[in-house]
């Protein structure tokens, strides 16, 4: 062993990581070609997913994915921002803070399939009652059930990122504001939140990335219908859930290829959310430097 060989070894490992990523893209692109060739751009905006006529349009799943993630964000943002503000601004005792921290970590580490199990046994019956109240078809499963559980799943990420963003606000700013006689609320909404807003927004985007790609819990709760969802109580499918329920089969080669195409769309959407999130995050850090 010498330094050169050692460096070569490190370089090799680095290359392997890069190749894994490049290989993912390559495999998905190559294997989705037959479907894309057959459907053309309609693969993206076609609203029919029909293995019998072998027409494959991904629109119902793209809409399902965006819809569930958007609703999950709407539910999760107020809850997570509040939890983040409480942890970052209102808890002074360090041991209460560490308990809250641990609790949020606990929530973050519960596996997706366990959330799915909990959703089937607890959320679906509740939503079924709600649907009967408002006169919607009482499936229980559907967009709303999936979105609710999805929201609970992303709360821990969003709230701990909010907390961290708030804790990065320079102490001097806050102390100065208090010295001027501002109330806690004025300090939080007038100084800390505006200061941390880039990082908080980045946290929301990164959580969105998770929600978009979340598979098991959604597959178990969304009702697996290949139609465009039209209401909160509609059944639907996300890109991830349709892959989970249909990949292990293929009525035709195009069907399998179309599934690979869905995986590619999913990968691209989540990558975009991640990139925007991370670039905002570094912008947020930049503000800290000023």
């Amino acid at each position: 062993m010498n330094d050169r060989r050692f460096n070569a070894l490190l370089g090799f490992a680095a290359l392997v990581i890069v190749f894994i990523f490049a290989g993912f893209l390559f495999t998905l692109v190559v294997q989705s070609l037959p479907a894309v060739k057959q459907e053309g751009a309609a693969f993206l905006y076609g609203s029919e997913w029909n293995p019998v006529t072998t027409h494959f349009g991904a629109l119902p799943f793209i809409i399902g994915t965006l819809m569930t993630s958007a609703i999950a964000l709407v539910i999760a943002i107020p809850l997570s921002l509040s939890a983040g503000i409480v942890m970052g601004e209102y808890v002074n005792s360090s041991w209460i803070r560490s308990i809250l921290n641990t609790l949020i970590n606990v929530l973050a580490s519960i596996p997706s399939v366990v959330f799915g199990l909990w959703g089937i046994e607890v959320v679906i019956p509740l939503i079924r009652k709600l649907a009967m109240l408002v006169g919607a078809p009482p499936y229980g499963a559907g967009i709303l059930s999936a979105s609710l559980v999805l929201a609970i799943m992303i709360i821990p990420y969003m709230s701990s990122m909010t907390r961290e963003a708030l804790m990065n606000v320079p102490a001097g700013l806050r102390e100065g504001a208090f010295a001027l006689g501002l109330t806690k609320q004025e300090v939080v909404t007038g100084i800390a939140l505006p200061f941390a807003k880039n990082s908080i927004f980045a946290g929301i985007l990164l959580s969105l990335g998770r929600a978009l790609g979340e598979t098991m819990a959604v597959t178990m709760l969304i009702g697996n219908a290949t139609r465009i969802p039209t209401s909160l109580f509609s059944l639907g499918n996300t890109l991830a859930s349709v892959i989970a329920s249909q990949f292990n089969e293929a009525a035709s080669d195009v069907h399998r290829s179309a599934m690979m195409g869905l995986a590619l769309i999913l990968l691209v959407i989540t990558m975009l959310a991640g990139w925007f999130g991370r670039s905002l995050m570094s912008k947020g850090m930049g503000a800290y430097g000023k």
Partner: peptide, 16 residues
């Protein structure tokens, strides 16, 4: 709708 292993269902919920 027709006759196949998977068809395009006009109504209802899917399950595995």
């Amino acid at each position: 709708v027709g006759n196949a292993n998977s068809v395009s269902w006009p109504a209802g919920q899917g399950a595995a």
